[in-house]
Nucleic acid binder design. Structure first.
Length: 882
DNA sequence: CCAGTCACG
DNA sequence: ACGTACGTGACTGGC
């Protein structure tokens, strides 16, 4: 049998695992007080790689200690590194225990690093005809890539890896694997603390290597290079480059005392592993171990509900768990598969949803004194509504609470979510119902009913614990006063739906169809051949190979044909303008004409979107099936789609109100910046005000449209967590100019600058950031070693409180709005939310009332240090409400 | 099922 | 030196 070898860089992967689960450091502690996050993450990676590779042989290599032959030759090698956290070091011996239980060889060698052990064994394995996979968190090991050795570098967390093959290295860097060593030779390595040639970074190094092949090649030719700073640096730093290359080179001949023959992997010792998991308190791994050994979760008792035993439900007086099973995601149309009601370990189950209509059940559901504990109350409300039923007071919604505790736990599967909270007695829907085309509700009553009973049991088991966590996080008001009422408001909006006139869409569709075929013909003519314009691959070939247009940008897979690229090319060839036109219309046609027509319910001529309340990382909503939050508006062509959105009654109109500059107002509020606040209090045009400040203009007349546009981009940039490069790309200026703009901005708005510094610091110390309503977002990457990942987390830290607080504000406004409409006895109905905008339909007579009421509710939703401003519009269609 | 593209705030 | 704007969803082509 073909030999498949899996080599793992133990220290590096463990370290990755440690930081991947760093924000949950407190959760991963066993009964002995030992931190276990790195052990847990390491195990996850191990399972994942064993499954992916199916190795016949395995070894995990560890570093032996601080001193190696590399420190002997350069005593500052890996110097200046932050001290290894003790929470991490204490876990290492247990990772070795884990490997023993798994029956996996592990090895360390004095004076050598794990890399060298791996390099040596991988070399031997290549020679012996093995297929080898190396797993590491360290990109340096990609130099080991060969035709038979793949290097898998962990990218995010521990179970996602990027696989380096010779082709991938070539594609990504444009050099061979062994040239990676030369690259390090030229650039040095800051994380290992050795320098290369001054001012030579990856870009320069790649250029040099493509021309001269290696460090030696570079120096053979250095004399002939034309005079430049780089040449001087190269000559100056020759010794450094030579040393860096040696330091970067992984040994292929380390004096190891294990050989390929010692590495056979035969699978874990189940008993030993179970005992280890027990000590570590790894419930989910224990469960998996049992599942893999065909031992199912513990059987569960339940009662099949019938008309006869219905009276027994009366024993539940104060609270019930309730679950309504709808097998497909879209609960507006899904079938009903069954339901479950219960309390304190007594579970009543039925497939027959008609039973819910029995007064005993219907009243219990509608009751406000018998509190309901559920998973996804919005889904439940909409489902019950289709049966003519209502859902009274909800106490605990496992989905909502999990989302508030950690926005990353946004799985829509109860089993999955329960497991994330350490509850392992509930399989996932996928495990019970299957996936893809095979997904189906089981015919077997026992299987299906047990699953529903277990769902209730999971809700019950997690109730108290999660509510307490919510409280500890000071998030109870966020849950009680915002998210729970929000779910009801959203349910009502989804149920109401918005009427879409299919005639209007169809008429637009046939027009677009004609125009598309005209443009298509022109494009074929200009290209001299027919091809699929919608295929970026084919289009790229036509433009950049056949027509030889200049390549502006590349993607991972080929030439980029994105708008910004095509716009630059437009002057070069008339075909480009036609392609842009084609793209624009074909987008409108496929997504908004055809897509929207497909989404209209034939029963009422309406579209009923679903708002996902537990998805975004910031607290915003998202909208699916169809997405009504991205209906075109910027270009007139697409904006016309809005003419198809009409009121559901004759004599009604569409009314819309939106917050003006809500994110910048939130910024002014949370930064307390006096200058920014003054601008809003004066009612200034904020972009013009920013322009006057950062460009040092004396009078408003000096603010030209172009200057205002640039200032607007700066304002946006600030909200997004600014970088000079991002700003320069956005408005087409040099990075230097962009930096000058940003510096000027921070000088004029010192409060904003202070906030940006403070919030990043806070994210570092706490591991998360918060909105004005204590909505929380964890940012594990804030500790990442990679500049890229860390920078991203820092920008997120700056942006999330702003975007998230704006989301909080409009949610509060929506809840108040709904109540006001009801209290005032208005027929007006709230239909849509588009992040900073609310859309209603209302009888014409109510419009003048709404013009006062809606803005007053919205601008008083919360009290900020600056006023909130709201603008309203109305008309016969959504298009006309402008 | 992923990548590219493009629609929105 | 690093390589970027923040948050989403739908459609298409191509593996």
């Amino acid at each position: 049998m073909a030999k498949k070898l899996l080599l793992i860089d133990g220290n590096s992967v463990a370290f990755r695992a440690f930081f991947a689960l760093h924000n949950q450091l407190d959760r991963f502690v066993n009964a002995d007080g030992l931190h276990t996050n790195a052990i847990y993450g390491f195990n996850t990676m191990l399972d994942h790689m064993i499954k992916a590779v199916e190795p016949t042989d395995m070894l995990v290599a560890f570093d032996a200690g601080k001193t190696t032959f590399r420190t002997a030759m350069f005593d500052n090698y890996k110097g200046g590194r932050a001290k290894t956290p003790s929470e991490f070091s204490e876990q290492m011996p247990y990772i070795e225990q884990l490997l023993d239980a798994y029956g996996i060889q592990h090895y360390k060698l004095k004076d050598y690093e794990a890399d060298d052990i791996i390099g040596t064994l991988a070399g031997q394995a290549d020679a012996a005809g093995y297929t080898t996979t190396v797993v590491t968190g360290d990109r340096d090991l990609t130099q080991l890539t060969t035709d038979h050795t793949t290097v898998a570098v962990t990218v995010k967390g521990v179970s996602e890896v990027e696989r380096y093959t010779p082709a991938h290295v070539q594609e990504k860097l444009g050099i061979t694997a062994t040239q990676i060593i030369d690259m390090k030779g030229l650039t040095g390595d800051t994380s290992d603390n050795y320098p290369g040639v001054t001012k030579v970074g990856e870009k320069t190094a790649l250029k040099l290597l493509k021309q001269y092949g290696s460090v030696e090649g570079v120096y053979e030719n250095v004399a002939d290079m034309k005079q430049s700073k780089m040449k001087e640096h190269l000559i100056e730093d020759h010794d450094l480059a030579v040393r860096a290359k040696v330091l970067a080179t992984i040994k292929r001949d380390a004096p190891i005392t294990v050989g390929l023959a010692d590495l056979a992997y035969a699978g874990p010792n189940i008993d030993q592993l179970a005992e280890f998991y027990q000590t570590m308190d790894f419930q989910s791994f224990l469960k998996k171990l049992k599942v893999n050994n065909a031992e199912p979760v513990a059987p569960i008792d339940y009662t099949v509900l019938t008309k006869e035993n219905l009276p027994e439900l009366a024993q539940f007086k104060t609270a019930v768990e309730f679950y309504l099973e709808m097998p497909t995601a879209n609960y507006h149309t899904s079938a009903f598969a069954g339901f479950a009601i219960g309390h304190a370990g007594k579970w009543y189950i039925s497939r027959d949803v008609e039973l819910l209509l029995q007064p005993a059940v219907a009243e219990m559901l509608a009751s406000d004194t018998i509190k309901k504990n559920v998973f996804d109350m919005k889904r439940t409300i909409v489902g019950l509504n289709r049966l003519g039923l209502s859902l009274g007071t909800v106490d605990f919604d496992l989905l909502l609470v999990s989302y508030l505790l950690d926005t990353n736990d946004n799985s829509n599967d109860l089993g999955n979510l329960a497991e994330q909270h350490g509850y392992t007695e509930l399989p996932t829907d996928e495990e019970v119902y299957g996936k893809g085309v095979k997904r189906a509700i089981p015919d077997d009553d026992k299987l299906f009913f047990s699953h529903l009973a277990r769902k209730l049991a999971a809700i019950a088991a997690l109730h108290a614990e999660l509510m307490q966590k919510l409280d500890e996080n000071e998030q109870t008001p966020l849950y009680d006063d915002i998210e729970k009422p929000m779910a009801r408001v959203l349910a009502q909006m989804e149920i109401a739906g918005i009427t879409v006139d299919s005639g209007t869409l169809q008429a637009m569709g046939s027009q677009f169809k004609e125009r598309l075929s005209e443009i298509e013909q022109k494009i074929y003519q200009e290209a001299g051949q027919e091809f699929n314009i919608n295929s970026p691959k084919q289009l790229g070939k036509i433009l950049f190979e056949d027509m030889k247009l200049p390549v502006i940008k590349k993607t991972k897979t080929g030439y980029s044909t994105a708008v910004d690229v095509l716009e630059k090319l437009a002057p070069e060839a008339p075909i480009v303008a036609n392609i842009l036109q084609y793209r624009q219309i074909s987008k409108i046609q496929s997504t908004y004409v055809v897509g929207l027509l497909d989404a209209i319910h034939s029963s009422d001529q309406k579209v009923h979107t679903r708002y996902l309340q537990t998805l975004t990382q910031t607290g915003r909503l998202s909208s699916v099936d169809p997405n009504l939050q991205n209906i075109p508006v910027r270009l007139e062509e697409g904006r016309k789609i809005r003419q198809a959105f009409v009121p559901s009654h004759a004599g009604w109109q569409i009314f819309s109100s939106d917050y003006s500059q809500i994110e910048l107002r939130v910024l002014a509020h949370i930064t307390h910046d006096a200058n920014l606040q003054a601008a809003f209090k004066e009612g200034d045009d904020i972009h013009a005000a920013t322009a006057m400040r950062i460009f040092n203009l004396k009078s408003p007349e000096e603010v030209t449209p172009n200057i205002r546009r640039q200032a607007k981009a700066v304002n946006f940039g600030i909200v997004y967590g600014i970088s000079d490069y991002g700003l320069s790309q956005n408005i087409g200026i040099t990075r230097k100019q962009a930096k000058a703009f940003i510096d000027a901005y921070f000088k004029e708005y010192p409060g904003v600058k202070q906030y940006m510094t403070d919030i990043v610091k806070q994210a570092h110390e706490q591991g998360y950031v918060e909105t004005i309503s204590h909505r929380r977002r964890y940012l594990p990457d804030i500790h990442a070693k990679s500049f890229n990942q860390r920078s991203f987390a820092e920008r997120t830290a700056m942006n999330t409180p702003i975007q998230g607080s704006a989301a909080d504000i409009i949610k509060i406004a929506m809840i108040k709005m709904q109540a006001k409409l009801k209290a005032a006895g208005l027929k007006a109905t709230m239909l849509l939310q588009v992040h900073d905008e609310l859309i209603f339909e209302a009888p014409k007579e109510e419009i003048s009332t709404l013009e006062k009421l809606v803005p007053s509710v919205m601008d008083s939703a919360v009290k900020l240090e600056v006023p909130l401003k709201v603008e309203s519009h109305f008309g016969d269609t959504w298009y006309d409400a402008k």
